[in-house]
Design a protein around this nucleic acid. Structure first.
Lengths: 101, 101
DNA sequence: ATATGATATCATGAATATATAAATTGTAAA
DNA sequence: TTTACAATTTATATATTCATGATATCATAT
């Protein structure tokens, strides 16, 4: 994990992390971690406003974190980058474990 | 990895990720991944301006990602959150592997 | 006490990110 | 072809982040 090595990649990596570093986008990615979802069902599940959802998805697309396929009028989004799943896994472990009852 | 579960923690988690989501702070954390370092040696190793370094370290402290100890006039910073090491590990795997020569 | 070294804080402006509303595009049903 | 639905794009106001320069603090050596 040398600095020299990271220096080469820090632009891409920080971009990736910026994609993740937002409450709403974390919720979206949690939903997508379960499998592909339509935009409408993401809106229902998260309560995020439609326009806002579209912008967040667009940002996630820009960072190559998600992709989508169209079926009729509906777009189905899904996680398209393994690093997303792995990072979410680590975050879940460290931040989402129940404390003892 | 339910949304309900993440909803409770998404504020903390996105704060944590914002701490990580910056080129300079990634470089700083790469250095600290090797062990504790003084501010001066961090400045030398990374080339980040003094004021800027101080602000970045302050932000990392706010997110509980690093701590420091004082020895005479010198402050030694170190990573104080396991999630930092684990997330950095995943990022390294996915983004910093050499492609085949 | 004063000077110096190591670091932090403050103030400012430029660049980015976010939320909201309005207008637009693309697909399919009537 | 008109209408409605699903989603994106554009515009704009506000908030946050970041870089820089100036100043301040705190510990130590003289």
């Amino acid at each position: 994990m040398s600095t020299k090595e990271m220096r080469k990649h820090s632009g891409v990596v920080s971009g990736f992390l910026k994609g993740l570093a937002n409450r709403d986008r974390l919720l979206i990615l949690c939903e997508l971690a379960e499998g592909e979802k339509s935009v409408t069902s993401l809106i229902e599940a998260t309560g995020i406003a439609q326009t806002s959802m579209s912008q967040h998805l667009s940002k996630l697309k820009d960072e190559n974190m998600v992709s989508f396929r169209r079926e009729h009028r509906t777009l189905y989004y899904f996680i398209s980058h393994d690093a997303v799943r792995d990072v979410m896994g680590v975050l879940h472990q460290h931040f989402c474990k129940e404390s003892k009852t």
